[in-house]
Design a binder for these strands. Sequence first.
DNA 1: TGTACATCAGTGAACGCGCGTTCACTGATGTAC
DNA 2: TGTACATCAGTGAACGCGCGTTCACTGATGTAC
Lengths: 212, 212
Amino acid sequence: MASIVRDRVRAQMVREIKDRALAQLAAGGAAALSISAIAKELGVSGPALYRYFPSRDALLADLIVDAYGDLAEALDRAAPGLPALAAAYRSWALAQPHRYRLLYGAPLPGYDAHDQRLVTAAQRAMNVLVARIEPGPEPDDRLAGQLRAWAGRSGTDADPATALRAVTAWSRLHGAVSLEIEGNYASMGIDPELLFAAEVEALSNGPLSSGP
Amino acid sequence: MASIVRDRVRAQMVREIKDRALAQLAAGGAAALSISAIAKELGVSGPALYRYFPSRDALLADLIVDAYGDLAEALDRAAPGLPALAAAYRSWALAQPHRYRLLYGAPLPGYDAHDQRLVTAAQRAMNVLVARIEPGPEPDDRLAGQLRAWAGRSGTDADPATALRAVTAWSRLHGAVSLEIEGNYASMGIDPELLFAAEVEALSNGPLSSGP
DNA sequence: TGTACATCAGTGAACGCGCGTTCACTGATGTAC
DNA sequence: TGTACATCAGTGAACGCGCGTTCACTGATGTAC
């Protein structure tokens, strides 16, 4: 039987490593994440961290999986209705842009986007979106087939009309949120919130919305 | 009077440096851009490059300005109508994702987003979008004021209805294109082109379109 | 046309930095009898 | 309760790497008279 105390101390250390790692991401992007620097901040030698993570990439992968899970939870906690869901998505991203970039920004050099853990984690976040959205109009046959297959693989078995609306919503939310995060609207002197509201409105009442 | 031959050789060298730099960006992202590595590829010592660019950051800034200009030109060459404009935007991004990321991806650590040269270059690309788009519905007062001020500063003096449609189009195009570039649709087994077509359709006929 | 000078491109050595990772090892903490 | 052993956390030295940038310098190319 493992020692409970030792396990708890260990879990605490893992938490602290991740916290420092996230702080580094926030400060300087993914390129700034450094095992050595984290160790220094924790007052420990560099190699010590290899007791907790087999490599820098493994640490990064853990952070990504955590972030997908966290976003999925945030979406799941949103009140019913598309506006609340959209607001939850935006809030999560604005509160921690460095983590949002980790999920949907540029892939890191040498990082394997096809890692099964990462694909599964990403799917989990999308599943919440699909589960909480109303169906839109019917897609054409080709697209419907692809959407059906995707929904099947993900285990949600959502109908194509719902899947399409989820993907469309995601695309638009990502467009608005990522431009906001990088300061593009701010540098134009335009309030991102007003633009976001207009996009949510269009999603609710546009040709891809649920209502007629 | 300067030597024409020398100037031509120099311009050629600048071109080659930029070409190698772009190849590095394509291969490993902005973090992989290295003065030393470029020099090595060109068969020249590292410090030699400082005859052409005062620093790594200056080289990067030049690449960014070039990319904005190139995108602006590509948009300007598009046939009339929103579908062609949207297709031009997407084509440019797909053909050179590394340059697209340079423009609208995460800012680089230590890089100054408020550099006047960069802001001006970015504005130029947006101006083309504004100039080539039909007006949409009228925005509400607050948004209209901000859009008017922005258009005024940019020298286009577009009306708010046109500016809003341009910004909305940009946001949606960016959402679709950036998710496509990072392989998000591919990993879902969905053809990005079909989704893009649906978005262009919505932009053309949705509540933010020019028509009634 | 020839000569003196200025400009420019490029070199090699050096500075100081930080990185991920491996290795042999010490010491503390837990487990089994 | 005490003792032998196993597990685990952490250390310090080392390896090999690449980076941006500065500096004093050489040699070639251009310019002015």
